[in-house]
Amino acid sequence: MPTHNDEVILCRCEGITLGQVRAAVQQLQPTSLRELKLVTRLGMGMCQGRVCRPIIQSVGQAMFQDRSETRLAYQIPTRPVSFGDFVKADDDYE
């Protein structure tokens, strides 16, 4: 199969390319997909990985033999919320 060019974007929100991921793996030597996410911000943008999660999982499998497809963490809020709304929701919480 044709190899993806290094310039292909994997995470649209943060604009992270395959080349950047390769470089991060080489220079910073993360040992897990979670560490790779932390050093690159892969999947940590506006959509919260809603779009790129399958891409990130395939990278994890290829680079870390990480086959735990389901174990990438999910964070709240699952949708972007303005800080004001967040505080208001907390006030409304009985």
Partner: peptide, 8 residues
């Protein structure tokens, strides 16, 4: 891109 509110 997605047209249904997922991708932002």
């Amino acid at each position: 891109y997605c047209a249904i509110g997922h991708c932002f």
